[in-house]
Structure formats: C-alpha cells, structure tokens
Amino acid sequence: MTATPAPVGSRQVVTGKRQRPHYFTHAFLIVVSLIWFLPLGWAVYTSLRPYGDTGGNARGYFSIGGAYNFNNFVNAWNQADLPLHFLQTILVVVPALILILAFASMVAVALSRYSFRFNLALLMLFTAGNLLPQQVVIVPLFRLYLALPMFAPLSDNGIWYDQLFGIVMIHLAFQLGFCTFVLSNYFKQIPKEINEAAFVDGASVWRTYRSVLLPLARPALAALATLEFTWIYNDFFWGILLLRTGDKFPVTSALNNLSGQFFTDNNLLAAGSLIVALPTLIVYFALQKHFVAGLTLGSTKG
C-alpha cells in the first residue's frame, strides 16, 4: 500500500520483443466504452431538448433537430427546489466529513501507535460494523431516533428523528469503520521512531497526534475525504428512513419525492438527474487521483 498510488495504469509494461499492434483490443475497448458512456450521453442529449420536440406525437426521442437549450435544467432546478436540497446536502456532508476524519484518525492513531489490550478486537469491531448491511440495524435504530432527546439548534423537534444532525450521526457511526481501518493501516507504516522522538521531546499524546502524525497522514486523509464525500453525497437510504420534512432532504434522497411533471417528462427527469449527478462527477474528474487512491487504500493491503 502506498500513500498516493501513481495514477492507475502509469506503469509501462515491458513486453519486449512481442509487441504487436492491438487493433482487436482497441476495437473491443472502444465498443465497451461507447456502451458504458451511452446512458449518460443519452441523458445529456435528452436533457437538452424540449419535451415538445420529443414527446407526444413530435419527432420522437430518437431524432435530431428541433431546439437545443438549457430550459430543462432551469425548470428542474426550480421545480424540484434543488437549491434548498443542495443546502441540506452541504449541512450533512461538511460536518459528517470533518467528524468522520477527526474521529477515525484518532482511533487509528490510538490503535496503531499505542498498544491497547483490545486494539485488534476494536479494529475488527469497527471494520465489521462498516460491512453490516444497514437494514440489519434499522428497526431498533429507528425507534432509538424517535426516543433520543437532542437540544436546539441541533434538533428543532427535541429528538434525533427528522433532523440533519441524526443523519450526520449515522454516517459517522458507519463510516468510522472504513476510515479507521484504512487510516490504522496507514499509520502502521509510519516508522515508530517518529513516535519515540516525539515522546523523548516530551510531547503529549495529543500533541503527537495533532502536530506530528496527522500532518503525515494528509495524503490518506485527502483520499478518504474525496471518497467519503461521494458516498455521503450519494446516500439515499438514510435520508429516506430518518427524515420526514420535505425541506430537510439532502439532494439525493429528495429524488424520491420528485413528482408531477417529472413522471411524464423524461427530458426534465434527465436534466434533474444530471444536475444531481454533477457534483460527484466534477469531484471525480478533478480529484481522480485521490478518488482511486481512497478506494484502493483500503483494499490493497494484504
């Protein structure tokens, strides 16, 4: 495992003398890529055309011509209240990311750099918890959320249910598992001498963590942040289960409440879907390196 793997595929394969042209392979790859790109490409194409040119008795969807514009995007943006839901997403993603990375790095440092009697058991608990299907816990969890008290401003109804705070907490509980696992593997690779030097200098455990180890983990934290952003942004289930007030839904869960014209107008639906997909696509293309690194950080460790 390396901190920041070089972009996948950058290694040159030295096959020496038996280098043949790869016409067949390229043809295969092009066909596969076209098929893979088709659904998104189709969504983009559909979204740019007015319903009047494609639906009903007009040209049909599989056609060229008519108008091309961004009206569907404007309509979807307004009709589905997307600005409001994007705000809710930010209110979930930002605190969740900060808390997850802070807590996971603390646990990871404690478990990998100091010896607890139960550190392996704890690490297993965290990892296993992360792998449990959510539905295994939701029945009691739902009751728990109805019963647990919480004060304003974290809760405007006095309990955890129907609160963004509750969503942040469940993401925190689940994602701690994955991040702790990845980060503890990461910290194990940092030479122990660093700890000892800090110890000899009289640095406290907290200072060692905060000023020495955490900065060293920056690449891993960046990778995890990218990945966790996508996962939390993409969460659909927790919003559906633990929220009720329509205005509070983060954007992905809000998709479930699309109504009216969205049912009968595929062009509008395409535009709405693309707007919601856009942030993760941007993050992916901008931070591809971190993204892939994050995924493989947790997995290449044997």
Binding site: F142, L146, N157, G158, I159, Y161, D162, R244, T245, G246, N257, S259
Partner: peptide, 20 residues
C-alpha cells in the same frame, strides 16, 4: 402549517404521531 410530501406523510404517520 408544516407540509410534508403526501406519500411521505402517510409512510411516517406512525412515528410522527408518537414522537413529534
């Protein structure tokens, strides 16, 4: 008036009436 989407209102009525 606290409006909740029609289907969601029905799905969550049980929790809603008990909790808040």
């Amino acid at each position: 008036i606290n409006t909740v989407e029609h289907n969601k209102f029905q799905d969550t009525i049980n929790a809603y009436l008990q909790a808040t």
